[in-house]
Amino acid sequence: MITIYQPDEFPAALRPAAVTIGKFDGVHCGHQTLLELVRAESDRRGLHAVVVTFDRHPLALFAPDRCPVPILSPRQQLEQIATFGVDAAVVLPFTRELANLSPEEFIERVLVEQLGTELLIVGSDFRFGRGGAGDVELLRRVGRERGFEVIVPEDIPGPTGRRASSTWLREALSAGDVELATQMLGRYHVVSGTVVHGAKRGRELGFPTANLDPATVEGLIPADGVYAGWFRSGGRVYPTAVSVGNNPTFEGVPQRQVEAHLLDANLDLYGESVDIAFVQRIRGMEKFASLEALIERMGHDVDETRTRLRMRAETLETRRFMAGC
């Protein structure tokens, strides 16, 4: 998959194109339906499969204080999109100039002139153009005039029958419900970052941890608590107990630390880029009355992590993470 950041640089060799367009924040099961369909229809019709997305949420430009936290970093998002075998991803810079295009101008300039769209696949709630004035019916009407077809697949329900959405996925992660997130994603939610030196309290307590540098973290960090997870470094995967939060038993701990205690492995990971997959939440973050109580609880957390990961060792989500997906 090639990535293009300016639509006017779109290669002529990729025209005509079957295009799907959206923010794709999280690349959840609803997004996956669009990606699978654009790949299948492009193969069937002899077109090139192209994904159009945006470099930021619209609220990042118009109301930064209300902009939701991204579920995936741009790198993570493009990596997930690439797994669907599309030919190209076009990342549109969401500028005021782009936001001020009328729906008709967006169709003509981007879809027709720059991408050579012959087939457009979008979700039923897709809105575009100045003030979100463009919708599916407008796309269909203009498409008939400009020679491209529009396909709108049925909405994909999530695990409980509710329509899958980035908002729901973000809510689940923010509540620590990583199992619900897994069901919506068809894979584990992953946070990535670079390992840095911490206060070494875990080592002193007998549970050494790999601490992620907060400045390098990619992916929405789930709610505070302790999780069973998988840890990937250098192509190898290890079972891990993950702590998220500020460890209230100790004073002066920076907020929102992500720390991973690898089970049965003691590695020098400082400076390495690693991935942590969140499998199940074991408990919330707690303040303990003594170090002895904390150590006892950490021992229980490790035992619980072993049990839960043993039950998940052969699942599709685990195999995908083991394979680097």
Rank of each mutant, 00 (worst) to 15 (best):
I4M: 07
A12L: 13
A12D: 12
A12C: 11
A13C: 05
A17W: 01
A17K: 01
V19K: 01
I21S: 13
I21R: 04
K23Y: 08
G26A: 02
V27D: 03
V27Y: 00
V27I: 14
H31Q: 05
Q32A: 03
Q32I: 05
A40Q: 15
A40D: 13
S42E: 10
D43H: 07
D43L: 13
G46N: 11
G46A: 12
L47C: 06
A49G: 10
V50G: 13
V51T: 11
V52S: 05
F54S: 03
P64K: 09
C67S: 12
V69E: 11
I71F: 00
L72R: 01
Q77M: 09
I81H: 05
T83C: 07
T83Q: 11
G85Q: 05
V86T: 14
V86E: 00
V90I: 08
T95E: 03
L98I: 13
A99S: 15
F106A: 06
E108L: 14
R109A: 07
V112Q: 05
E113P: 14
E113G: 11
E113A: 15
L119H: 07
L120D: 02
V122G: 00
G123P: 12
S124G: 08
D125W: 03
R127G: 00
F128L: 10
G129W: 11
R130Q: 14
G131C: 09
A133I: 09
G134V: 10
E137Q: 15
R140M: 14
R141P: 05
G143S: 08
R144V: 11
E145Y: 01
R146P: 13
E149W: 04
I156A: 06
A164F: 03
A164K: 04
S165Q: 10
S165E: 08
T167E: 12
T167V: 14
L169C: 09
E171A: 08
D177F: 10
Y188A: 05
V190M: 02
V190L: 01
S192L: 06
G193T: 12
V195P: 11
R203F: 08
E204A: 14
G206H: 09
P208G: 03
L212M: 13
D213N: 15
P214L: 05
V217G: 04
E218F: 00
I221P: 15
A223G: 04
F231A: 06
S233G: 00
R236P: 09
R236T: 14
P239Y: 01
P239Q: 08
A241V: 13
V242E: 00
V242P: 06
S243L: 12
N247V: 11
P248A: 04
T249P: 09
P254E: 03
R256I: 11
R256L: 14
V258W: 02
E259C: 08
L262I: 13
L263R: 09
D264M: 02
A265G: 10
D268M: 10
L269G: 04
Y270H: 10
G271M: 04
G271I: 01
V274R: 02
I276H: 07
A277T: 12
V279L: 03
R281E: 10
I282K: 09
R283D: 06
K287Y: 07
S290N: 11
L291K: 12
A293S: 13
L294P: 11
L294N: 11
M298S: 06
G299L: 09
R306D: 12
T307N: 07
M311Y: 02
E314G: 08
T315S: 14
T315P: 10
T315H: 01
